[in-house]
Design a binder for these strands. Structure first.
Lengths: 191, 191, 191, 191
DNA sequence: GATGAATGAGCATTCATTCAT
DNA sequence: AATGAATGAATGCTCATTCAT
């Protein structure tokens, strides 16, 4: 779409990741994006909107990739594994973005409380549907609450990703983590 | 110990939970604590220090209770279950505190990057030691990296607690969640 | 040069002279200059910088006028007399500025100790050069330390100017003071 | 008189000289004097009063010593010389005090404008009386305005003292300065 | 008299946002 | 559309002073 829009988004991710949303100045983002301060307000309603746009932007990417990836696999097992791996891989590839999504977003009080992160729920629903389908296929323990399972899985993956992003000296490779995480979670829910 | 110190901590938890750390004014905390603005600076170096003190304060509590609880149980399995249940129970009982720990703390850039959350690592180590001991006893899969397992467990529990705290209409009871979570995680790691 | 820069300087002189540097609020200066508070920080680093800029600004004026005046006179005697008269005259014409230079500046601890008032020394050097030249021409007592003489002259003129500025009912005319001062100092140093 | 009163005065001189009146905290003075903050208010009305008391205190000393010194000399010339020497000597012996008197006092806006520094005028009057007497004895130029002469003399001495106090590497000895200053001023006013 | 914990008024400075150009 | 100078509301923190003990 608009070239400047994307330039500003990219700059914001960089700046927010480095300084944190609250300590980052709109002027910093403008300078990083090589536009005037005022220009940002032609594309975004305000600073909060910039943060939210980063989120929506990324989630759109995540969602479409995740759907695509899931569709290429046959079995529930493979679908679930592919999903976990994708999540970790995407964050690995976009560490600055990951930092923003993980840390800054949660701190945007308005975001967490007022703004309904519909896209995030769509993301969770991808997992939940896999769980439900697995249960229907008789693969997963039928007594487990899919909602709880979903959150647990997401929490586990996300925590690992967060740690990995914040760690300076990486003490494990992300592929290994994905492998072990999948093994552990799958064993935990299968019948 | 000091009566005013505690009064300010309690007030800060309340105010930070409601308004978010960044939007909360020191004056709000002072009013809530029924002390003068300046009094806060007799007990805390600055606003950040107040947030960090809440964390350290809570972690001390968490840690001592967790250790005590673990010691009352015999088997690794019971210890692990008791730990998970305690974590959820504590956060349930202190929802405002939970909000602060979960949301606001992460946003304090200084906290997440500069400040080494030693107490938090002690907390994680309690889990990790259980995992390692379980592996040595031949109970848990020996190939799993205890560090990864630990983070995954913590992430799962914490995400569940976070959701529960943020949800207005609770869609599940926390005891149920603890039960299912434990079942799932334990099955996932045992031999 | 910049119109707002000068407007702020002028406002600051007025406000500092009236309330004193420490008791003057930046907001007072802004209101006097008819700009927003923040605008001041577009032109000056901080309140201290504003004070220092007033000094540098004035000294530049003083210096260039003093040099010009000195150059128009032939004899050392006339040069010296012109210099003293100019100093008193300038301060008389800019009483508010004089107050700031005399009183407020000295109180800016940073100014007197850290900041090297190079411009002020240039000003002193104008006198010192006259003294030295006078000694070389055999006009002035050769045994007098030019540095001490310079400071003594400056102190005498400045004290008189200070008193005159602070006095509400002027008990003498400045021209008379200039005349007498010159007579006294010149007689004191001539051979 | 009271032992604590003096302890506080001494502490204040030290602290004010080091940090400057405005940047010095009452608590700093209290700590230096080894008393509680509140104690200071048993002896002084407020921070300003502390500064003024230092001034009055010192001026009392200066005045009595100056009177004594003058009385020991016979001729006007000797009296005047003794006076100048005493002024410089006293400041040399009490450099911290000198700093406070010279710099900080002037910045106390209230002091310079509202408070009538009666003691200071008594000090000046000692000089003025010598001048007048000298004129009556036919020693000094009769056309010079004694008031102007007095201020000029005071300004010259004081400026020299100020420079000497502020200089880190002393470029002249104070005795030399006193000698030259006297020679120059005396020659300047004598018939 | 002496203390020092508590007070709360006071203010420099920042920075998201606007708007004339 | 783009700019960036100007705005002014907003707030963390300091510190002189008080007063219960």
């Amino acid at each position: 779409m608009n070239e400047k829009y994307q330039k500003i988004i990219d700059a914001a991710i960089k700046v927010f990741a480095k300084k944190g949303f609250f300590h980052a100045k709109v002027a910093d983002v403008a300078k990083q994006a090589d536009v005037a301060d005022g220009t940002i307000y032609l594309y975004f309603k305000n600073k909060d909107d910039l943060l939210i746009s980063i989120f929506e932007n990324s989630m759109d990417n995540f969602l479409s990739q995740a759907k695509k990836t899931i569709d290429t696999k046959e079995s529930i097992k493979d679908k679930l594994k592919a999903f976990l791996t994708l999540h970790l891989t995407l964050l690995e590839k976009n560490q600055k973005l990951a930092t923003v999504l993980q840390l800054e977003l949660r701190s945007s009080h308005k975001f967490m409380t007022e703004y309904k992160a519909e896209k995030f729920f769509q993301y969770l629903r991808l997992i939940e549907e896999l769980i439900i389908e697995g249960q229907q296929q008789g693969l997963f323990k039928p007594n487990l609450n899919p909602h709880i399972v979903t959150r647990a899985i997401f929490g586990a993956v996300d925590e690992l990703a967060l740690e990995w992003v914040l760690m300076k000296k990486k003490s494990f490779v992300l592929e290994e983590a994905a492998e072990q995480l999948f093994q552990m979670l799958f064993e935990g829910i299968r019948l």
